[in-house]
Write a protein that binds this DNA or RNA. Structure first.
Lengths: 339, 339
DNA sequence: ATGAAAGCGCTAACAC
DNA sequence: GTGTTAGCGCTTTCAT
């Protein structure tokens, strides 16, 4: 036997029909005992494996899902991907990797992959959708798509996410609670929804505490290390520099801490720093970073769970699933010096 | 039109044969101009996309590759995955995610996925293979499999990797060059090949420098943060504690630095630390970590490139591809205090 | 409980 | 340059 065995081979060997072999191997419970065992043994002996293309063609399903992230190289996604993978695996689905790189054209391609049968469903972790009319025309809210981490408004896909605004607010309240009054914020690339929400949380907390947001206290970043550094430098150059900085993600927070240190400031002695995301190893930094943790693996699992429900004919949930965040108070925040 | 269009629909609409449509859409250059354009336009108007299951069944290829890592949650793989994804994408291949979790059974499943047509080839980044006789029996060296990062001996798969021993040796030589004589090592989970090689590099460098390796100077770790901490504590409890520690990866190095700081030791003032891998953000630590960088994205690209060559009928390269590493001298290493 | 037959949608021989 | 035909390997009516 040099050729890969197919169902027909087993069937002929055993003098049964291909249909029976298929039924036996699929555990349908429709095949009676003497035959069942013989088929299983023969399949095992021949080291038979069903051809997935043939099966997919026939069943019109691929038993695969497509996971599309903004940047596969960003550690931020590690746990989410892990959660998705685990849930998919448990349900017998394979996971295809999608890397959008913030490129609308690529995103379109992933939607195409969905349509052409590469995958049965898609989990989208990009903050936006291509805006070409051609794309919009073919967009339907009952595509098997779940949006996770990010928000995409106006297309009716189910979401699983956190309350970014409330979480940011909590982070700033922590600083306020420590006695800080001069608190600055470095936001992400507004007007992206996530960046806006985190900034809104900052503003809400400041207002609730009756604190002003002086000119220059809101700096714009892009979630990368260098932008944290740059924003920090600008903040320290202010006539009244802040005693605390809340940055919209951990990576920028590391950049800021670096810059502070380079300029001879102690963290948290001179300036407190709070991040957002609780990256892998954020706790291992020195000092360990105070930050907002989101349940990333759980987000991945839930997103996959929702997708699986939709794929098995369930209705697309209309309300977004909001998962709780945790403020991790660690070593980069302290009371301000008496001034 | 409510149903998904198929080739036949286009063919009938245009009064040509399905074969012609297929050829036109596949850019075979076999269809002449009046027809060609009409077909393209019709396909575009109908928003036609070929069904991949049908195509895969017919062509006996899936145009997908399987990427299997030890732990998808480990940041170590980020750039490798990115490199693989980029190369695969450029060649028109999709990437399926495999997460072995050090479980031989799972690994077997991924080999099965290869056989059953889920993917045309596989990139393996696990250090070992299942050892069950059943698995070994069906193992052939001309499976389209490339091993990256790790080494798997005795099965004849092509490899792309770094010279772990030479790289480790270089790291230790750096410490020797700074004047250190009491240099300890925290290795990975020996007897895994990678851990062994890095340890051999340490030993070779010590021997070449005429330095002894006192009892207890070789500690065993498991590449995780906590084991770096623990090993460090044991090293400091030695009668003659080391002035420098070379750890087999960055994560353990962070653990060690943490522990050193907790015990009031300055890095690099009291103890120098060198890691291995140059993790994402290792440079952002304080002090920035001195470590060995390997060209991870390039490893991914090359592995994928080799796999593509094999898939297009090229011979499996017999000699492993060895990519160069770089010692990144940063802030955690300095000359020892005069003692 | 099993078999016969059809067909999923595509591409590749082979004709013309 | 285009059409005809067959068939990839499987699952699923429908019949018995």
């Amino acid at each position: 036997m040099t050729r890969r065995p197919k169902i027909k081979d087993i069937a002929e060997r055993l003098g049964v029909s291909p249909a029976t072999v298929s039924r036996a191997l699929a555990d349908t419970g429709l095949v009676a005992e003497p035959t069942l065992s013989r088929i299983r043994e023969a399949a095992s002996a021949l080291n038979y494996r069903p051809n997935v293309s043939a099966r997919n063609l026939r069943t019109r399903r691929s038993m695969a899902v497509l996971l599309v992230v903004r940047d596969i190289g960003n550690p931020f996604y590690l746990d989410v991907v892990k959660g998705v993978e685990a849930a998919a695996r448990a349900a017998g689905y394979a996971v295809l990797m999608g890397n959008a790189e913030n490129d609308p054209e690529r995103e379109t391609e992933y939607f195409d992959m969905l349509r052409d049968g590469h995958a049965d469903g898609m989990i989208l972790m990009t903050g936006s959708l291509p805006s070409t009319p051609d794309f919009r025309r073919h967009l339907s809210p009952d595509l098997p798509v779940v949006v996770a981490l990010e928000m995409i408004e106006g297309v009716g896909f189910p979401h699983v996410q956190i309350d970014n605004e409330a979480a940011a607010r909590q982070a700033v309240e922590h600083l306020v609670g420590l006695g800080h009054r001069r608190i600055a914020h470095v936001c992400g690339p507004v007007p992206e929804e996530m960046s806006v929400r985190r900034r809104e949380g900052y503003r809400a907390a400041m207002q609730a505490a009756g604190l002003p947001i002086p000119e220059g206290y809101e700096q714009r970043g892009d979630y990368l290390l260098q932008s944290g550094r740059d924003a920090c430098r600008r903040l320290l150059a202010l006539p009244e520099p802040p005693t605390a900085i809340f940055l919209a993600n951990d990576e920028m927070a590391f950049g800021a801490i670096h810059e502070l240190r380079r300029m001879g400031r102690d963290v948290p002695g001179d300036v407190s720093v709070v991040g957002f995301d609780d990256l892998y190893l954020s706790e291992a930094f020195f000092p360990p970073l105070t930050t907002v943790a989101q349940p990333r693996a759980e987000i991945g699992r839930r997103a996959m769970g929702m997708l699986l429900d939709m794929l098995s004919g369930g209705p697309a949930p209309h309300d977004p699933v909001i998962l709780p965040t945790t403020l991790k108070v660690r070593g980069t925040t302290a009371a301000p010096k008496i001034s």
